[in-house]
């Protein structure tokens, strides 16, 4: 703290770790672009009820006569369906905006919960060592040796459809990645001098773990979390496409794509095409940000 307050007199722009991080991140135009696009998508998802031309789930606003209209058609209600309509006469643009909400909610929600669960277990494994470590890591190995899609499929087959169930399934298949990451970096960090110093000061274990160890394990955790959000969104879409994810009343992008499947064969491409593009742009933008984060936060790549 004292160094940051003393320095400005000499140099107006102090190099704090955060600023260095920001400038290093901004070195990649592509990553900045990804961040911008993702920001826009998140904003659209949050503001959907205010900016969508139609509330796609208010049956009073739907006109079945407008069903399966091509993109750009002017509907009975007088406004243009820029991305066409689905079989119920729902405006696809509005459907996608609302679908994004569900997709992002499930993706980010499951990633955050999995992060908390996984990071805690990884931290416990690294700090406790011995049998606890062995037991937790065996579980991680078991989880990682089984493909995520199958594990999620089976959990949902038993639990049934529903947003909460999808989140549970995603947390179960994702926590292991966080646990492994955190354990790996915590094992390295806990041998450092500052942890030894904290232990010599007889600080409580909880304080050492949360205030000293955890913050220093954050960089790799952030990278994994970013990538896992993208993975969770894709996985949720896949599960919903297979008919095992979110219920029809709360369609995510994956379910919108699934709804268009049968019409695709008769050449009505837009019902599946545009939600897919939205999904693709979301996933790619998150991955671009994640790629750059990994490069910036990886100490091995530091010049």
């Amino acid at each position: 703290m004292s160094t940051t307050t003393a320095a400005p007199v000499v140099a107006p722009r102090v190099e704090t770790p955060f600023r260095r991080f920001v400038s290093e991140f901004a070195e990649s135009r592509l990553a900045l672009f990804g961040l911008l696009v993702f920001g826009a998508i998140a904003l659209i998802a949050i503001l959907a009820p205010f900016i969508a031309p139609q509330n796609p789930y208010d049956l009073a606003q739907l006109d079945i006569m407008d069903g399966r209209m091509e993109p750009g058609t002017v509907g009975g209600a007088g406004f243009t369906y820029w991305l066409g309509t689905d079989d119920q006469g729902r405006d696809m643009l509005s459907g996608i905006m609302y679908g994004l909400r569900i997709s992002l909610l499930v993706g980010a929600g499951s990633a955050i919960i999995a992060c908390i669960v996984g990071a805690s277990l990884g931290m416990i494994a690294a700090y406790a060592g011995g049998r606890t470590d062995g037991a937790i890591m065996r579980l991680v190995d078991l989880q990682l040796s089984f493909p995520a899609i199958l594990a999620a499929l089976m959990i949902l087959a038993f639990l049934g459809k529903g947003i909460l169930n999808v989140v549970i399934a995603l947390v179960v298949v994702e926590w292991a990645y966080y646990a492994r990451t955190v354990r790996g970096s915590a094992l390295v960090e806990r041998r450092r001098e500052y942890i030894e110093a904290a232990q010599c000061l007889a600080l409580p274990t909880r304080r050492i773990i949360f205030r000293h160890l955890l913050p220093n394990c954050l960089p790799p955790l952030i990278v994994v979390a970013t990538m896992q959000i993208a993975r969770a969104i894709a996985l949720e879409a896949t599960l919903s496409f297979l008919g095992l994810g979110v219920p029809i009343t709360e369609p995510s992008l994956g379910l919108l794509i699934a709804n268009g499947y049968e019409y695709m064969l008769s050449g009505k491409y837009w019902i599946s095409f545009y939600p897919g593009i939205a999904l693709l742009v979301t996933i790619v933008s998150i991955n671009l940000v994640g790629d750059q984060l990994r490069d910036v936060l990886n100490p091995r790549l530091k010049k």
Binding site: A237, L242, M264, L265, S266, V284
Partner: peptide
């Protein structure tokens, strides 16, 4: 190849059907 990692498989499948089978 980055796209190959990011693209949702089922959607690519649908697009393949759309282009090579329907169109």
């Amino acid at each position: 190849s980055i796209l190959g990692f990011s693209l949702p498989t089922f959607w690519v499948g649908l697009m393949l059907i759309m282009v090579f089978a329907v169109q």
